[in-house]
Write a protein that binds this DNA or RNA. Structure first.
Length: 475
RNA sequence: GGCCCCUUCGUCUAGUGGUCCAGGACAUUUGGUUCUCAUCCAAAAGAUCGCGGGUUCGACUCCCGCAGGGGUCACCA
């Protein structure tokens, strides 16, 4: 049996959003599961649309998400080059065969003429078919005109690895352009040649190619090639669910998610779960589990909406499972500037306290700044607290004084702090909802914070007492 | 407009003729976990399985029609 070889073949026209990365992911999973190869190929046959820096960006996206490829433009491989603009002789060679077999011909019309045909068809509410205008005696192809495929329209019934059995009639088969007048092949031609030469066994691509597939099948036959296994993936829709996710309406670059502190493994898990599941109730899959359990025939046929809240939940779930040291290494670039003055040991203690609250890393500053710097006193925290606003300043001040007195000779271990806090409850006769709220606000000035004793233990005696004093002076 | 594909809780989905008056997860709501936020635990609410016909003893599951949505009809991929 032939080794499984899959490819991801983007055009360097921009960044990768979740839809694009999912296509890459599924292809990667199929290859890894079979112990085969995953290949990156650049389809840069439209020079007008090319975007500067897109290649590097695409490569970085795959790398950062851990979708390593075995052959590609930057690392080479046995079928190099992996960039279509460097493979022009191949396309010429295959095109020549087609011409000799009478299956390709020069398009004698001007673009305006073809556009005229198209508009006429549109006006008549008919689909446009170039072959209705197929020239009887086309000129010899000299490279200055587009080279067109001479199709042999027929019906097809084929099996798609995801969509199942698909049927179309001859009316969808047309004479499409093989090689453009600028000398570059079209996607339609180039991908077929490349996939064949690179011995690709499975083609994963978006559903938008479903309707052109019969044309490709016709070309495979003309070329004497066997078509690879085809898998058309349903679209990922935008949040409103009314169209396929696209860069135009705000689809985010996957690298932006990484920059915001989403974990690659969570991204991968989440993206895989849009349109695929293993038939059980499992939601969280490690990379290795995905590789082991993935199957194209469990891929959904309908489109899925992209729900960022679910991604947040999953990322938080992954963060919680991380060993503290691992998490610490990953958040290096996300600390608030105030943290610069503190050593790793202190930061790690802080991180340990907020780990279960963190959904993505850019939240780190809002969750931790008060551990590193004194926040300005916020009177609203007390005035807006439904438990505390009932009491007047002298009562609150009195409790804070008692707290201070008790804390003075604490060793500030979590255990001792807890004991003293509990004793304070007795001494003041107040409920934790009142006393602890007051102390928590005084010592953090933050709307939310980890447990009181834990927080004070990390803050330490000097800072805790100073903050209580500060609160006292402003009651 | 032609052709193709799709259609289960708000969202992601399980479900391949009976075990489904439909299960899980996210989100939402409520309660508990000595304060807040979060975690965790428990619970609630949430889908007449797009609609209408068949087939069958029996259909979310099979067939037909319709509707809605998406895609495609480029010298873009």
């Amino acid at each position: 049996m032939k080794p499984v070889r899959t490819r991801f073949a983007p055009s360097p026209t921009g960044f990768l959003h979740v839809g694009g990365i999912r296509t890459a992911l599924f292809a990667w999973l199929v290859a890894r599961q079979a112990g085969g190869q995953f290949i990156l190929r650049f389809e840069d046959t439209d020079k007008k649309r090319e975007v500067e820096g897109a290649r590097e960006h695409l490569i970085k996206s795959l790398r950062d998400l851990g979708l390593e490829y075995d052959e590609g433009p930057d690392i080479g491989g046995p079928y190099a080059p992996y960039t279509q603009s460097e493979r022009l002789e191949s396309y010429q060679r295959w095109a020549q065969r087609l011409i000799e077999a009478g299956r390709a011909y020069a398009d004698p019309y001007t673009p305006e003429q073809v556009q005229g045909f198209r508009e006429a068809a549109q006006a008549a509410k008919q689909p446009f078919l170039y072959r209705n205008h197929r020239p009887e005696n086309p000129p010899a192809w000299d490279g200055s005109q587009p080279l067109r495929f001479k199709a042999e329209p027929k019906a097809y019934t084929r099996t798609d690895a995801v969509m199942g059995e698909l049927t179309t009639g001859p009316e969808v088969i047309d004479d499409f352009v093989l090689i453009k007048s600028d000398g570059y092949p079209t996607y339609n031609f180039a991908h077929i040649v490349d996939d064949a030469e690179m011995e690709i066994t499975h083609v994963m691509r978006g559903q938008e190619f479903l309707s052109s597939t019969p044309n490709y099948l016709n070309l495979y036959e003309a070329l004497g090639l066997e078509a690879p296994i085809l898998a058309h993936l349903p679209h990922i829709m935008n949040e409103a669910g009314n169209k396929k996710l696209g860069k135009r309406d705000g689809a985010k670059d996957v690298l932006d998610y990484i920059r915001d502190g989403y974990l690659p493994e969570a991204m991968i898990n989440f993206i895989a779960s849009m349109g695929w599941n293993d038939g059980t109730e499992q939601e969280i899959f490690t990379r290795d589990e995905l590789i082991a359990k993935f199957s194209l025939d469990h891929v959904q046929r309908s489109g899925a909406r992209f729900d960022e809240r679910r991604l947040e939940w999953m990322n938080g779930a992954y963060i919680r499972e991380l060993a503290l040291d691992d998490l610490f290494d990953r958040v290096t670039d996300f600390w608030p500037p105030e943290a610069a003055d503190y050593d790793d040991d202190y930061r790690k203690k802080v991180l340990g306290l907020i780990q279960e609250r963190l959904k993505f890393f850019t939240e780190l500053p809002q969750l931790t700044t008060f551990f590193f710097a004194d926040l300005p006193l916020n009177p609203e925290l007390i005035a807006g607290n439904k438990q505390l606003k009932k009491f007047d300043a002298s009562e609150l001040g009195n409790w804070l004084e008692q707290t201070k007195a008790s804390l003075l000779d604490s060793d500030f271990s979590v255990g001792d702090l807890t004991d003293r806090l509990n004793a304070l409850l007795e001494a003041t006769g107040q409920k934790p909802g009142v006393l602890f709220s007051l102390i928590r606000i005084a010592t953090t000035q933050a709307p939310a914070s980890p447990g009181l004793a834990d927080t004070m233990a990390v803050l330490g005696r000097d800072r805790t007492l100073a903050r209580i004093d500060a609160q006292l002076s402003k009651l």
